[in-house]
Amino acid sequence: MSRRVTLKEVAVRSGVSYQTVSKVINGQVQVAPDTEARIWQAVRELNYRPNYTARSLRAQRSFTIGYSWRPSPPDQANPILDTFLQSMFHAAEQRGYYLLCFPYHSDTQRQIESYRELMETRRVDGFVLSGVEYNDPRVLFLLEQKFPFVAFGRSNPDLHFPSIDVDGGYGLRLATEHLLAQGHRRIAALAWPEESRVGNNRMEGYFSAMRVAGIETMAEWIQRGEGRYAFGYEAARRLLALPAEIRPTAMVCLNDYMAVGAIKAVQDGGFQVGSQIGITGFDDTPIAQYLTPPLTSVRQPVWEIGERLIALLLNLLEAKETAQEFETILMQPQLVVRASSRKADQPDLIPKEVMRDP
């Protein structure tokens, strides 16, 4: 086994104190750009590897962040989650931390016990939460324990904790306004169940856009169910079976899987997607651009959110910020317009919040 290079050797090579080297490597101090460049060059040349066991003992920290997520259905890939994970992995590694991914339990008690064990055994310094809902037991438990965490998503208005969220209401309002601009007035929504916090937030945008346009939404136009292809297909079939005078000519969907199902149902029903029935999705998954026709969808800044969540949590851990000072950051999504929602005879007016993807 080769001899381990020491921190002092890196310091000698880069011409600074070993305390400065340690702080730069651990992201605890800012130095002049040329000094930082010399330090990292010495790290690479000497192939320096920190002794994380000794580091953890000195700092009384594990330099590990816990993360668990609800698994996707076996037949439904989740590229948004993959992007989110990769962004957090990279951001954490740059600051000398790693992610510990642990199993998700649908049973609330088992779920909380997983968090408790990781806390009490000091295997993690903090947690990242996602898929946050109303009265989320994880949020309630971690707030009670005063254990560091950040979340991708909000919960009850009276619960205050560090979080970053996408303004889903704004995103669905963009999609609905786009369909209104295409001349549609009977616009349906393929939504999630009413207990879904994220779903309710997105639906606020739909109702707002319809209200501003002076259109009263009909109960028949709101179809609620799981965000899966099968539900999208059946919901669209029900909408197309409505009497002609109230049959929707457009549909906004709360995710792309529902939108893909709706496209298939519309095509099976003998209608043309885009020119006759406009359809939009949400998430802008990679498959959206390869459908026939390509799917208009709301794109979330998922990579940036993952990076910012890690930075926020580490700032909390390193006492650069406090949880009490932090307000939820709302990030705006972007509507990517494609053929599934465009009418050939309508002007292609694209506001600044929207991008066109041919």
Rank of each mutant, 00 (worst) to 15 (best):
S2V: 09
R3A: 13
R3L: 15
V12D: 15
Y18T: 03
V21S: 09
G27Q: 06
P33Q: 12
D34N: 14
R49A: 12
P50N: 03
T53D: 13
S62V: 05
D75V: 05
D75Q: 14
L81S: 08
D82I: 12
H90P: 00
E93N: 10
C101Q: 11
R110N: 13
I112G: 12
R122N: 11
V128L: 14
V132Q: 13
K146D: 15
F149E: 10
F149S: 05
L159N: 01
H160K: 13
S163E: 03
V166K: 03
E177F: 02
E177T: 13
L179Y: 03
Q182I: 09
R186W: 01
L190W: 04
S196P: 07
A213W: 00
A213I: 02
A219N: 04
E220Q: 09
Q223L: 08
R237N: 07
L240H: 01
A241H: 03
L242F: 01
P243M: 04
E245M: 02
I246T: 09
V252C: 09
D256G: 02
A259Q: 08
V260I: 13
A262M: 11
V266E: 05
F271C: 10
S275I: 03
Q276E: 15
D283G: 03
T285W: 09
I287P: 04
I287C: 11
A288S: 14
T292M: 14
S297Q: 04
R299S: 12
L309I: 09
L313H: 01
N315Q: 14
A319S: 12
A323P: 03
T328I: 10
T328R: 10
Q332K: 13
P333R: 10
P333S: 12
V336F: 01
A339W: 02
S340G: 07
R342T: 13
Q346W: 05
D348M: 09
K352G: 02
V354H: 13
